[in-house]
């Protein structure tokens, strides 16, 4: 076809540009990490090496120079990953020159992570440390049953908080899910704009952890389960909508086509062609989310979202480890029970 021939050169130019950018970044990363970790930390054994913005800048220049030379050879990770370097039938891509650059990056990242995380076996096995570990484990395994009732009530609060947050989010996400589904929205420009705006909103709100939302709402509505519920609600709407819309995107187009062919109205097409295909997956996913939110609600409690997490935070702050031990047992029991129940229910409705 003539259309493809016309498009081809432009396409290759874009691929080469992408490869070049990737190569520059890769080489800059290799240069920077080699200098900061291998040279300064390991060879010079500096404890707190100085940081100047000139260091990443020079690394970038080095990356630029190396990439500019090596883009013409087989030592180009970008060319390899974007498929410009062709692999013959009797060759393996993992043994090509560009693959070794990939291995080098992984190795350097591993070494860097080791130093950045301050991994120290000396501290792990120090007598002082082991003593502390023994103390806390003894306390944890001797829970204070006197606060069982208090813990249980807090746990109930957490479970219900997670439930209402999910339940309130369902109808909102159900409606929004249709507007965030590409296959229903890419018909014309107006709907596709709505789709993109919705997607952007949800990506932003999802990228803010519920933990952060809980902090915001604990200031807004005060510390307590309501703040936690609001935090979970925001997160549920975003994640349920995303999941629901992906469910809609993955449905079989056949029934939609068939219902359209009967002369049905668009609303009828959605109700008869889309909804029957998504109800069970929705239900299954929603129960799974509730299960996750009970766990999350515990964590959210730590920053003022109420429930058992709040209690855990209080006792931990006072270093009352026997009480903490009790709460840990309750949390573990709930998580286990929820996990079991949700998987059973999901199995049953499949």
């Amino acid at each position: 076809m003539s259309g493809q021939n016309y498009k081809a050169p432009e396409h290759i130019a874009i691929t080469y540009t992408k490869s070049f950018v990737l190569d520059v970044l890769t080489w800059a990363y290799i240069a920077l990490v080699s200098y900061k970790i291998i040279w300064q930390k390991i060879v010079l054994k500096e404890r707190y090496p100085d940081f100047f913005w000139s260091q990443p800048l020079y690394s970038f220049y080095i990356g630029l120079a190396l990439a500019f030379i090596l883009i013409f050879t087989n030592f180009s990770l970008g060319k390899g990953l974007f498929g410009i370097i062709k692999t013959k039938d009797d060759e393996v891509a993992t043994k090509k020159p560009f693959a070794y650059i990939g291995y080098l990056v992984i190795l350097l990242t591993f070494i860097t992570s080791y130093y950045v995380s301050q991994i120290s076996l000396k501290e792990f096995f120090s007598p002082q440390g082991l003593e502390g570990a023994q103390r806390i484990f003894t306390a944890l395994f001797n829970p204070n049953w006197a606060i069982f009732e208090e813990g249980l009530f807090a746990a109930v609060e957490t479970i219900y908080m997670a439930f209402i947050a999910t339940a309130v989010a369902i109808p909102v996400a159900f409606v929004l899910g249709f507007f965030a589904a590409r296959n229903l929205m890419n018909g014309n420009k107006v709907t596709f704009t709505i789709y993109n705006l919705l997607r952007a909103c949800f990506n932003i709100s999802r990228s803010i952890e519920p933990l952060v939302w809980a902090i915001i709402f604990s200031v807004w509505v005060g510390i307590g389960p309501f703040a936690g519920m609001l935090a979970l609600f925001i997160h549920s709407v975003a994640s349920l909508t995303k999941q629901y819309s992906e469910q809609i995107e993955s449905i079989d187009d056949g029934p939609i086509e068939a219902i359209t062919a009967t002369g049905a109205h668009p609303i009828q097409i959605v109700w008869y062609g889309v909804v029957p295909q998504i109800v069970l997956p929705y239900l299954s996913y929603t129960i799974y989310r509730w299960d996750i939110y009970v766990r999350m609600a515990t964590i959210i409690g730590l920053v003022g979202g109420g429930g058992i997490g709040n209690l855990l935070m209080q006792y931990q702050g006072q270093a009352r480890w026997n009480e903490v031990g009790m709460l840990v047992i309750i949390i573990a029991a709930i998580v286990w029970a929820m996990d079991w129940a949700s998987s059973r229910i999901r199995e049953a409705i499949k």
């Binding site: 056949g254 219902i259 008869y272 029957p276 295909q277």
Partner: peptide, 8 residues
């Protein structure tokens, strides 16, 4: 592929 409504 018939394209019937599933579960109905």
């Amino acid at each position: 592929h018939f394209n019937l409504i599933p579960r109905k």
